[in-house]
């Protein structure tokens, strides 16, 4: 990889890693279902930016953009379904605490 490309990739990669760590920590530390979805969103955002950066460095932004559009479509469906599930759980348990989700315990 060229020196200038490596400079851009390493700078973006550094901050992308930090957002990824934020999202991962959010999922691991939270006890709220909605906050877990927010953590997942942060992970997806990190991946989205990484795809765009690699597309830019590869002079192939068209392909990268098409992949990002697919990622965004999947992201929206995921958020809608997860939000609906969280809402149903809240209606059933009157709570969104993940520690109390023991209804399906075998």
């Amino acid at each position: 990889m060229e020196a200038s490309s490596w400079g851009l990739f390493s700078a973006f990669g550094f901050f992308i890693t930090l957002i990824f760590v934020c999202g991962l920590y959010c999922i691991l530390a939270t006890r709220s279902l909605i906050r877990a979805i927010i953590g997942l969103e942060l992970l997806i955002k990190a991946v989205t930016l990484l795809v765009i950066v690699t597309g830019y460095l590869n002079n192939n932004t068209a392909l990268a953009q098409s992949f990002v559009i697919t990622i965004i479509v999947i992201e929206v469906v995921l958020v809608v379904i997860a939000g609906g599930v969280a809402l149903q759980i809240f209606r059933h348990n009157d709570d969104l605490d993940t520690r109390r989700l023991t209804n399906l315990r075998g």
Partner: peptide, 23 residues
């Protein structure tokens, strides 16, 4: 800024707008 305007528009309208509304 990374020469991907279409993805940027999608990100702005869907991720910043729609997903925030859903949340």
């Amino acid at each position: 800024r990374l020469n991907s305007p279409l993805a940027a528009v999608f990100e702005l309208s869907v991720c910043t707008g729609l997903i925030t509304v859903i949340f």
